[in-house]
Design a protein around this nucleic acid. Structure first.
Lengths: 345, 345
DNA sequence: TTTGAAATTGCAATCGATTGCGTAATTTTT
DNA sequence: AAAAATTACGCAATCGATTGCAATTTCAAA
């Protein structure tokens, strides 16, 4: 077999003087075929370098053993980790992954989802992009009878399986930690509020302030500061205030926290003595900055595995109640140097 | 359409009292069908929320419009970037990506490749794992008439399309830079020599020493130091030598260089004054360590795009000569603080 | 009005594997 | 050894879309 057509079950059947049915059954290890014949078939299949045509198989079977994944960016630590986790768990079960990136564009996200529907994937796993709050395309997935699992950035109003982080609680703990470390005027760098994860983090921030009887100061809350650059910009404004904050919670990401660090450094403001900094996501770099950044670990790989397992688990379920299951993973506060106001950590 | 079957071209045909042939043609925008009918078909297709079944289509057409990618780890910056680049370029052309990770295991790599062959992918893009030097599985890909493109970590003996970095030259320039910066005893942390990329980097190192008339000192060359931990371990040994090096080229990765930095720090050896450090790969963290790390940028996203474009370009080619094309991308030395011996950068 | 070419549409086979149903072959049971 | 029960295998339809070829319709030129 060089350039020629690939071998099919018919080729094997012809060579052995039997039917394709038997070959198919043998290849699927059906017990409806004689052991001897089965062995013979296996052997010739091997000789002919036969490889099953999955397209045909899936078409007939009505499923694709393929899971589609849509994320804003593949090359972002958190998402890459989640995908790695999903891949690991699904590969063992013989499933394949089709990966798409929306690039934070709602339009491309819609395109991706439609492509995946076309591909006849058995399940679509998605973390929605930041712009857009119309989720017709996701409803469409459900209407097509395709399992939909949202993770991290989810459209809350949609009743689907979800795997999320307890953002509010994590945020609450982070801010509590800042307060208990002795910081008094704590600023918040927040992300786009149409994403629930950012909304929840803000709620956690507010809840912590309340719990410690600290008033909310509007000018310490900076909107839309979710990249390193925007974080830096927000920090410059904050630190130029008549009464600047003595801590900044970059609730959007460690990148944003990195921006904070750079600005503080440029302004010769000492972290953590004069300014406490807390990030989010435990990016690999956060432990090697100086000072290292206190942050929140989201167990991203585990999250991916959880998504995969959730799918397999629900797959077995006979449509009993179709209760939208939500799995919440508790993130962990990682305390490092950037919040050690009094030298203690 | 709720739980029911998905709509097919037959449903559309039935509703319109025509044949599936016409529907198919209309959907493929063939000029063999009347404009009016075409419009009508399009409209009803839309109304019925029709989505083409790609499996059936591909089965018939004999290709899958799918590209398989095998990398050691998805969640490693370099690979995530390459994949992002491939995705970007292929998505536009309506191709899908199936991603697998070998986890640096030769066995799993073989499995992955076979799965992809089964999946009937049109092309397999691979960066081989570190262990194993048997490439029968790759030959198998070729024998199945599937386009094979290797990138970065390639099996040189296999005549396939390749997209690589000019590792030797980059390495040569890095070491030259160290020498010109005033460092005299330059150590090398090298990676598994069965991977050509690491071999080439070593050659570049040796060539630079020779060019500047510096003798090779065997004890300054540390084998298999390609993780942060192994890099640190190697560094400890190097720095405990009677005559320790005054610079270390961590040719394997920035992670390894990070290990160097940490050990130097722990031993209170000043970088870059007493020890120059150069990494490889321009990981995002390399610019925010202190000091920031001189490293080599591999243009990973661009590399991915190049792989994709190479595929599309070759696809058109009628089997003229089947010359194995090799595209070499020139990496760029990024000079930062960790090699500024005399304060100059 | 007739004729011929061009434009549309239908028919039926095909891509490769799977599977329900029926029949033939084999084994087991009396 | 005959009847009953398995077991093994073949037949043919099916999954949904595509496409070469044939048939029909349309339209303009003669």
């Amino acid at each position: 077999m060089k350039k020629g057509k690939r071998t099919t079950i018919y080729d094997i059947a012809a060579k052995l003087g039997i039917t394709a049915s038997s070959v198919s059954r043998a290849l699927n290890n059906s017990n409806q075929v004689n052991e001897k014949t089965k062995e013979l078939i296996m052997k010739t299949a091997d000789e002919l370098n036969y490889k099953r045509n999955i397209l045909a198989s899936n078409l007939r079977k009505g499923h694709s053993k393929t899971i589609g994944v849509v994320v804003p960016r593949i090359n972002q630590n958190f998402f890459a980790n989640v995908i790695a986790g999903i891949e690991e768990a699904t590969y063992q079960k013989g499933y394949n992954l089709i990966i798409c990136q929306s690039g934070e564009s709602h339009d491309k996200e819609i395109q991706c989802v439609n492509t995946l529907i076309n591909q006849d994937v058995d399940c679509i796993v998605i973390s929605v992009s930041a712009d857009g709050s119309d989720y017709q395309h996701l409803q469409n997935v459900i209407d097509h009878g395709i399992q939909l699992i949202q993770f991290d950035r989810v459209a809350e109003e949609l009743e689907t399986l979800k795997v999320i982080n307890d953002n509010e609680q994590a945020s609450y703990e982070a801010v509590s930690h800042l307060i208990e470390s002795g910081y008094k005027r704590i600023a918040l760098l927040e992300g786009p509020q149409n994403l629930s994860i950012f909304k929840q983090r803000k709620v956690g921030y507010l809840r912590a302030l309340k719990a410690y009887n600290i008033g909310v100061i509007d000018e310490l809350i900076v909107e839309n500061a979710w990249t390193k650059e925007l974080g830096a910009e927000g920090t410059r404004k904050l630190l130029s205030l008549p009464q600047p904050p003595d801590a900044i919670f970059a609730s959007t990401s460690d990148f944003s926290a990195l921006g904070v660090l750079e600005v503080a450094n440029a302004m010769r403001i000492k972290v953590p003595a004069e300014l406490g900094v807390c990030g989010y996501a435990n990016e690999s770099f956060s432990e090697i900055t100086s000072p290292s950044i206190t942050t929140i670990d989201q167990f991203s790989i585990y999250m991916g595995q959880t998504v995969a397992n959730l799918y397999f688990q629900e797959k077995g379920n006979t449509d009993t109640a179709t209760k939208p299951k939500i799995i919440s993973i508790k993130p962990e506060l990682i305390i490092r140097a950037s919040t050690a106001k009094n030298g203690k950590s």
